Amino acid sequence: MNVLYVYAHPEPRSLNGALKDFALRHLRAAGHEVQVSDLYAMNWKATVDAADSKEPPERGRFDPSHASQRAFQNGWQSDDIVREQEKLRWADVVIFQFPLWWFSMPAIMKGWIERVYAYGFAYGVGEHSDRHWGDRYGEGTLAGKRAMLVVTTGGWESHYSPRGINGSLDELLFPIQHGILYYPGFDVLPPYVVYRAGKMNEERYATVRDGLAARLDTLATTAPIPFRRQNGGDYAIPALTLHDDLARGEHGLRIHTR
């Protein structure tokens, strides 16, 4: 398979750096073609601004969405954005690895999403009618591809349990897995999570490494998270609310999985 590895950590000698290096060796040894977007090493520009387009400066205010749409449609996108979009088109699987900082991904990776997911590429696509509300949440440009998170966190697993102080990790990752990955069409695999990242010895690292290897070996066969398709009949259109007869009496993020 073609695997794109999108990675965000500023220190190559960190636990994240070791896991990333191991994952790349393991994937290549298994015969996969691999491309890497090491965002800190690339000095990736994380901010969205008018420099993302080669369009002559427009008069008036800068509208990020409309500028992104025009740039994508007319071939005016900056070269770094185009290169990353080409990697996404090439990939069968995309792995995003990052430390969980302040309950989310590092800003540099969020900036990669905001710039690479251009209007017309990852959003704003498909028919909008009373039967179909855009190609998204299970449809879209990236449909048919798989994605997985590799996440490290300093907290204990119990801290991220359903009754843990930090909240359920499944819910904390929902904006990323559902809103960033499933939205443009990815089949999203369950994440590989490493807890207590700052308390790592050689024995525990070997266990973590072997667990990651097992997940990498099953990228093609692991069942994805069963998110509901937006246009699959579970939601009223255009309200985009779950039909009353589904998950009756339930609320919260979990109603969006089957």
Rank of each mutant, 00 (worst) to 15 (best):
G179I: 11
E203Y: 01
Q77Y: 00
R131H: 10
F174Q: 08
Q230N: 05
H251D: 13
S53T: 15
R131W: 01
Y123F: 14
H9A: 07
F72P: 03
Y123A: 05
P162Y: 09
G140P: 13
M109N: 02
D217E: 11
P12R: 11
R228L: 15
D52E: 10
I255M: 09
R83I: 02
N231D: 13
T241S: 12
Q97P: 10
R61I: 00
V116G: 03
G134D: 08
R136F: 03
D79V: 04
F98N: 08
P190D: 08
R258I: 09
V150S: 12
R136D: 04
V3F: 02
T153P: 01
A213P: 03
G179T: 11
R61H: 00
Q69L: 15
S168L: 08
D92M: 02
P226K: 03
W112V: 06
V208H: 10
M148Y: 06
V3P: 02
H66V: 08
V82Y: 00
A122I: 05
R25A: 13
V194Y: 05
R229C: 01
F72L: 10
S161R: 06
V151Q: 09
E139D: 15
T257V: 11
S158K: 12
D79W: 01
G232T: 07
W156S: 14
A239P: 00
G126C: 10
Y40L: 01
A46D: 07
L181C: 04
A51I: 00
N74Q: 12
P57G: 09
R248V: 15
A23I: 06
P238H: 12
H251M: 13
P224A: 09
W112Y: 11
V188A: 11
M105W: 02
T47K: 06
S104P: 05
Y137E: 09
S53G: 09
Q97F: 10
D234I: 00
V94Q: 07
P64Q: 04
